[in-house]
Design a protein around this nucleic acid. Structure first.
Lengths: 238, 238
DNA sequence: CCATTCAACTTGTATTTACAAGTATAATTT
DNA sequence: AAATTATACTTGTAAATACAAGTTGAATGG
């Protein structure tokens, strides 16, 4: 329990309120408890509560109105493509099913989807996993994720079914996505993708190679996403 | 001066520091004055300074390091794909050649690439143009642009060769791009695209449908971009 | 009955104070 | 000379307090 003491209060409150919104305890349009009420509930002072609410408002979970209160907005739409926090929040968890094709395992690597690696990254090895995402029971996403094996104890033994990878990294390892870069191209499905997406030969598929920045300096997450855009186009704002 | 009193202090400090970064008073890598120094300079207390710095850090202008200070990062990169200002700035104008396939002309429209239109937009008609973009003399982009014909006098008679459409809108009509939304998918080249891109049948092509917001309320620009990603992948940050 | 006023909320801004924790440099010790 | 320690910075967290400003609804006046 000594690690928990290191997590600041405003962050704890943020996590609690955020999960209450994403898990449906609060619904869109609901009025959040007032700041003073939240103070007594969480046993902290108003500046601490406000810092948590600041972040929630900044990320679009709530909208604040002076004299009125904070109104729940729901899960925000992503910025960029597939949103910052991964595919899960872009579509909403309701209709998204995740199959783990390759369970998280330690691998050696020398490069990540055309992105060069630092010496430390190469020496540390990576946690490798493959997932297939089904939207309304149709396979739409297939993604390969590579995470440098730096300070992520017991990561490979965690359960990823129906959970966002980024949620786990944020809650358990305090790793937060800050931004990133991506290359996008259109390719023909190879045998593997034809099998996963259950499509014929010559089928066009979207490919994204992403290098994702985090709040840990020098710690990047690499992912390669393939997407069958027949029925679901990727949507993003900018 | 009575309105100025309504602007909170933390916002004033934010605006000052922000302009100092964008105007080059502070350069990338510079160490910002410490919070206490900023306090004495701007005659406010630390929480106020910190609120300004919070926002600057959140928007990417600075990065903060505990025990060290706040380091200037510069003007944050654009979000989205191809950057805010269109394909030209994404690649650099050097190797980009533009062929006008359909010169700007007034057309009727009822929808724009699956984006619904307002009554005013439909009644006004649109300025329609098609362009083929060559990178290093190879055709890479083919795009269709639709602009509502509202307050754009003499627009169709302008010359677009080698000029960015958005530059013309900004300089001559004070229309600035503020953001937008886009749908991205992977398709097979049809006869027209096969001809333009000089590729065989069944060739995968990237398609973007974009609705672009401007500083004019209710004034949107619609564009459909096809991209041959064989040699050049789309690149973007988020 | 209607309009106004007032009181009791809400969030927004700002100060003051205190200590924790990370960083860098100078001084000290080995 | 090199390693260690002390110290003087830096930012991070948190509380207690005060008042401003917007919203709402009940009480009061006409």
């Amino acid at each position: 329990m000594q690690q928990k003491a290191l997590i600041p209060q405003h962050r704890k409150v943020y996590e609690i309120l955020r999960s209450h919104i994403t898990d449906g305890v609060f619904h869109e349009g609901d009025l959040l408890p007032s700041e003073n009420e939240l103070c007594t509930v969480h046993k902290v002072t108003r500046p601490t509560i406000r810092k948590a609410l600041d972040r929630l408002a900044n990320e679009g979970y709530i909208v604040r109105h002076q004299g009125k209160g904070s109104i729940v907005k729901g899960i925000p739409k992503g910025v960029g493509i597939l949103s910052l926090t991964g595919t899960t929040s872009a579509i909403g968890q309701d209709n998204l099913l995740t199959h783990i094709i390759v369970k998280p395992e330690i691998r050696n690597w020398t490069e990540a989807f055309t992105f060069p690696l630092s010496q430390l990254e190469i020496e540390s090895g990576c946690i490798y996993l493959e997932r297939l995402r089904l939207v309304n029971n149709k396979p739409v996403f297939f993604d390969i994720t590579m995470i440098p094996n730096i300070n992520l104890s017991r990561f490979t033994s965690r359960n990823f079914e129906n959970k966002s990878l980024f949620d786990i990294l944020r809650k358990n390892y305090q790793v937060e996505v800050k931004g990133g870069e991506q290359k996008i191209l259109s390719i023909m499905a190879d045998e593997k993708l034809k099998d996963y997406f259950q499509v014929g030969s010559g089928h066009p598929v979207l490919q994204l190679n992403r290098k994702i920045e985090t709040n840990r300096p020098g710690f990047y997450i690499y992912s390669q996403v393939f997407c069958n855009t027949d029925e679901y186009a990727l949507y993003g704002t900018f």
